[in-house]
Design a protein around this nucleic acid. Structure first.
Length: 325
DNA sequence: CATCAGGGCCCTG
DNA sequence: CAGGGCCCTGAT
């Protein structure tokens, strides 16, 4: 069942993001969950990019002279890579990693904010981003449901081993997510054998929605109305407020997306804002709204990512208690 | 050994 | 709108 592809053809393209730009903060998100979909090694990122019905492997790295920071993308494919392929891979990466956004106003406005000045200094130019397609992201949010990180990883691995496409390029192995049509008709019991539990039904239904064209990422991308996108996403079986808020922020880049705080996020924000673990979400939300307004989720993102980066180097006692894996 | 909650969501009343 | 149930696992 497992498909493997060796990608031997290669082309390189260089992308100039809008400024200011922070490579590390944009491409490496320590708060995102680890999987075989994205491999990081030595300041390079390896992943699959699906466009149309083609699958490419890419190696993303920073290419900087002393003034400008640019993004180098090495594209790998089984077949010859055309100019059109290069364009579409570049465009896909620009969108997923939010490389054309202008967040100067945010950075300027809050560079002296007591809580944000540190993160803005260290990470100014970092963008909210997501490595996956919308469909891939939905598969991730599905396995995140009601599970610890460890179990989430296990479920994702099981699914990828059975249905994913193993890509071999640049001396690395990463997986591409299966296509919706490859999985929508699989027996529910077969999915359950992969220990995904009740999520089997969700995976099938979401896959059907994509395979049938009921929902399409490109259609949503050109819609600028957040509420409309939200409505369409919520129609999907197994997609609720939590998944939608992740998606609206990370995949569609709406910086004011904060309709509710999940418990684990609530505890962390509570600690950052009040230095107390148990402030009620309602109060936190009000304070966040007042302080950062339409930038509130982006502000929280800067705080979170900064915190998770710090966690890599120093032990933060109260944080360890909140993160289980 | 049993019980429980976990980085939600659906469904019912 | 509140609350039970859902799959499965590791923690207790």
């Amino acid at each position: 069942m497992n498909k493997t592809m060796e990608l031997r053809k290669k082309k390189t393209v260089c992308i100039k993001p809008s400024t200011p730009f922070n490579f590390e903060g944009t491409f490496f998100k320590p708060s995102h969950f680890p999987s075989k979909l994205v491999v990081c090694d030595n300041r390079k990122l390896y992943q699959a990019v699906e466009v149309g019905n083609k699958v490419f492997g890419v190696v993303i790295s920073e290419k900087s002279d002393s003034v400008h920071s640019a993004v180098k993308v090495e594209i790998f494919s089984k077949n010859n890579i055309t100019e059109k392929d290069i364009k579409s891979v570049e465009s896909e990466i620009r969108i997923r990693y939010n490389l054309d956004e202008d967040i100067k106003e945010f950075l300027k406005k809050f560079r002296s904010d007591k809580l944000l000045s540190g993160p803005v200094n260290r990470w100014g130019g970092m963008r909210p981003s997501i490595a996956y397609s919308l469909y891939g992201f939905l598969m991730v949010t599905t396995v995140l449901q009601n599970a610890t990180v460890r179990r989430t990883v296990q479920m994702m691995d099981n699914l990828l081993n059975e249905f994913g496409i193993k890509l071999i390029f640049a001396n690395k192995e990463v997986y591409a997510v299966w296509k919706p049509e490859d999985i929508e008709k699989v027996e529910e019991d077969k999915l359950r054998e992969l220990r995904v539990g009740y999520r089997a039904k969700i995976i099938k239904k979401i896959s059907h929605a994509f395979a049938s064209g009921e929902i399409s990422e490109n259609e949503l991308r050109v819609m600028k109305d957040k509420e409309e996108i939200k409505k369409r996403l919520l129609k999907l079986y197994g997609v609720g407020p939590q998944s939608v808020s992740y998606i609206l922020f990370e995949a569609f880049h709406f910086y004011d997306t904060l309709d509710h705080l999940s418990p684990w996020e609530g505890k962390i924000v509570s600690m950052l804002l009040y230095n107390k673990k148990t402030v009620e979400p309602k109060r936190i939300m009000k304070r966040v709204e007042k302080r950062w307004g339409k930038w509130k989720m982006l502000a929280l993102h800067y705080l979170f990512e900064d915190l998770f980066w710090r966690r890599k180097n120093e032990h933060i006692e109260w944080l360890e208690e909140e993160i289980r894996d």
